[in-house]
């Protein structure tokens, strides 16, 4: 089980010129693993995630999720969380989470929704409208909406990119707590190296134009991880060096 990405390439046509966005992506992820995909903006990491989600077809190659080839979105097996919470602004927390349900009338609907509201720590906000919630709370609702179908895989597309630093750290803990309970396979696309190392069992480093896998760095650190430990710093530096070589420190940092 898990996810198999087999020789996936993606071209976009812009003014009849083919632009290669992804080239020959070949990688397998195990069930229950957290994989961080990190790269500069424009490296095709979000496109890769959208192909895994079935929102976009690959130009070549295929993706298999739990042994089934992806041809279109399958909300029962794969949940997706976007950078923006994408809540329906006209309806409350409860109804927004209900929107995620793959079958409209499961027998224990009410209990199921309440359970997921509790899971993301929003008890008491059942009737609140999205505009009455903070950015972090809105993102919690969108996480609950994706988890309600108990997908075996959760795709996260820069989910904390728009949140402030403190909310971001809280949300990372929250997602790890959920992962510990549900053991979902998670693929996290991010441009934040620290986030990639802190969350991932492995970090996939992508290069840009065309997007290729540059390196896969396994993060052999026990959880819970200590962001201030030397071991952690070692892995952070390893990923960091993939993007910035020693000596090319930015002028602002040289004295």
């Amino acid at each position: 089980m898990g996810i198999k990405i087999d020789k996936v390439s993606k071209d976009f046509k812009i003014n009849s010129l083919a632009l290669s966005v992804l080239e020959n992506i070949n990688v397998d992820f195990a069930q229950g693993e957290i994989v961080s995909i990190v790269g500069k903006s424009g490296c095709g990491k979000s496109t890769l995630l959208r192909i895994i989600a079935g929102l976009e077809p690959a130009s070549e190659g295929f993706v298999e999720v739990d042994g089934r080839i992806v041809t279109r979105p399958s909300e029962k097996d794969v949940g997706i969380i976007f950078q923006e919470s994408r809540l329906l602004p006209w309806t409350n927390v409860e109804k927004n989470i209900e929107f995620g349900l793959s079958s409209p009338h499961p027998e224990n609907k009410k209990a199921l929704i309440q359970e997921h509201i509790d899971l993301v720590g929003l008890s008491g906000f059942e009737k609140a409208l999205p505009k009455q919630l903070s950015g972090g709370m809105q993102q919690r609702v969108s996480i609950a909406r994706s988890l309600i179908n108990r997908p075996s895989t959760l795709l996260l597309d820069e989910p904390f990119g728009a949140l402030d630093a403190f909310t971001k750290i809280n949300m990372q803990e929250e997602v790890l707590r959920i992962w510990k309970r549900e053991k979902t396979t998670m693929i996290l696309v991010t441009h934040d190296i620290d986030e990639a190392v802190y969350m991932g069992d492995k970090v996939v480093v992508m290069s840009e134009r065309p997007g290729r896998i540059e390196k896969i760095v396994p993060i052999d650190l026990p959880r819970p991880r200590d962001r201030t430990s030397d071991n952690y710093d070692y892995f952070r530096k390893r990923v960091y060096r993939e993007f910035f070589r020693e000596g090319d420190a930015l002028p602002e940092y040289t004295i």
Partner: peptide, 19 residues
């Protein structure tokens, strides 16, 4: 982005129109 959300959650045309 909301329409894509509808697609990602496998909603049919009717649901996408009314919801």
């Amino acid at each position: 982005k909301l329409l894509e959300l509808g697609r990602a959650f496998g909603k049919d045309k009717r649901t996408i129109l009314f919801k």
